[in-house]
Write a protein that binds this DNA or RNA. Structure first.
Lengths: 307, 307
DNA sequence: GACAAATAATGAATCAAACTCATCATGTTA
DNA sequence: TAACATGATGAGTTTGATTCATTATTTGTC
């Protein structure tokens, strides 16, 4: 019923001040506008402007529609621009979020390098999401989510970035430093420090402790890796982290680390994207860059931490 | 090009999950939707959704348009509702602002009474505007402005509410208490306390001092009537106010007041409204109520202050 | 893997609307 | 009052949105 065409007409009319002038700007005839506005007024049951004045003056109803147009049309234009960029392929948007709590080391260089290669792409990065990032990705509010546990949401595709080893970080004086790998039973008397997320999204529970039926003595939360490291270093507990997240602290001798189980505990980090974005060139490039950089980082790390 | 119709279709399609279902909800045929969407996709140069899945899944471009629709369509509906109320006449909106700094005494009872009589009308009241209220009124952001100096803005109409006498408030010990009216020259040595607005919008300057070529010794600002009264009572200056604004303080003996000039200085308070709202019944009623109540208030006041 | 049921796409025909053209009515300016 | 500008109007044309009938695809079931 009411259409954007009408709002465009009204806004133009306000700027033009007369039907004749407005019709020229819209590449229509004066007659077309006269008819269009008359029809609209008829359907709405109100007059929208006073024709006898010069420049034209709007009624309260007309002003209300002008306000609507002022709010709505810029949004529409923005959306149209976004679509153009989408279909163009060169430019575009890459709004990211990370679900894993310690990806900064390899993600930041990736983003830097990507920004240089694709300056036209609008990159945005959000960490510390309150809302679930994967549904937001499906809704189109995000374009890429780094996560270690894929959920089956239609339309989403998970590209594996790399496999990492989860290791147990322990204080340098800790009794477990004598072992060269950790068994589930070893953690029965320990305080385990975790990121504040549900248990069933932590590999150490789902892959290691629960299969063996072991429960740690206590579970504490910490939001930042550095806080975990401080707690671990001071002997207040142990924590399970990807090896690359601990490297820095290992190198400085703050803490020690041991593999979980005889064969180690491995997880995979994925980039979740919408299926239909998979063939966009800039996204492909981002994924390749991410793999390259994270692989390079990871290589060094495993050598250091396993040795 | 892109029209609201398209957004409505897409939102319905998301809820329905298939073209068939969506076409029923929209009271169209499946074919119509298929054509409409195909055309739209062609014109935008992107596909908007994947047809092969069940329920239908949207592409990034489609999701972008859905977001647009989620933002835009509620606003459109709201505007349409507002227009309906406008053309109906029973319900409506009355957003007010006051330019005069001390109308509360008579305006509040007016609003109360009006609210009872027209519960369907959405009344809003803003004082202390930073932006100019009269242009906002012309733009349709406000519906009524109480002001004492009408500006000639096309489309605005000024309905006189009442005429008031501006009087000079002075401390009880002030030398001018001996006069029974004030001449311009009397203010040459005085500190004049005013509301913080431009001089040319204050009657005491434009109507009284400037014609006589007199300038007060000092001009101070105060935002609230009660602050002015305290300054006046403690002999720090004098101020010019509508008689009804001073009554309360006169009755309690805090200050004295004298007419300005032999014949007094009178001003008129207007309700500014948009011309085309003048014939709305609820507005007419508001204006009548305002006149009644302010007249009643004013009657009492003049008797008291002049005597 | 074949068949039925459901869903979407397509082409031609129809219909409605939006637009143009020509003209008239009104108001403004010189 | 003539000349001009602006807006309204009615008839005719064009566009494009919709329907109808049909075909192609996909999905689910035995």
């Amino acid at each position: 019923m009411l259409e954007l065409r009408h709002l465009r007409t009204l806004l133009t009319l306000r700027e033009a001040g007369s039907l004749v002038e407005a019709s020229e700007r819209l590449h229509l005839t004066q007659s077309a506008l006269s008819h269009q506005l008359k029809d609209l007024e008829q359907r709405l049951g109100t007059s929208l402007f006073v024709r006898k004045t010069k420049p034209i003056r709007f009624t309260t109803a007309g002003l209300r529609l002008l306000r609507l147009g002022d709010n709505v049309l810029p949004q529409v234009r923005q959306a149209e621009r976004d679509l153009q960029r989408l279909s163009g392929g060169q430019a575009g948007r890459l709004h990211m979020a990370i679900e894993c709590h310690s990806c900064f080391q390899w993600l930041m260089p990736t983003i830097d390098q990507f920004r240089n290669a694709w300056p036209e792409v609008e990159v945005d990065f959000a960490s510390g999401f309150f809302f679930a990032p994967l549904p937001a990705l499906a809704r189109g509010e995000l374009d890429l989510v780094v996560t270690s546990d894929p959920q089956d949401i239609p339309g989403l595709s998970y590209v594996p970035l790399f496999t990492y080893e989860a290791m147990l970080a322990i204080g340098n004086q800790h009794r477990l430093t004598e072992r060269n790998h950790i068994e589930p039973q070893d953690l029965a008397g320990e305080t385990l420090i975790c990121y504040p997320v549900e248990r069933n999204r932590l590999d150490i529970f789902t892959q290691f402790l629960e299969p063996a039926g072991v429960e740690p003595a206590d579970v504490r939360n910490a939001e930042l890796t550095i806080m975990m490291m401080q707690l671990v270093a001071s002997g207040r507990g142990v924590c399970c982290l990807p090896s690359w997240a601990i490297t820095e602290y290992l190198q400085r001798g703050y803490v020690s680390a041991r593999p979980l189980g005889r064969d180690g505990l491995f997880g995979t980090l994925y980039a979740a994207v919408r299926e239909d974005m998979l063939d966009m060139s800039y996204l492909q490039d981002f994924l390749l860059t991410a793999k390259d950089i994270s692989f390079a980082t990871l290589e060094g790390v495993t050598a250091k931490t396993v040795g």
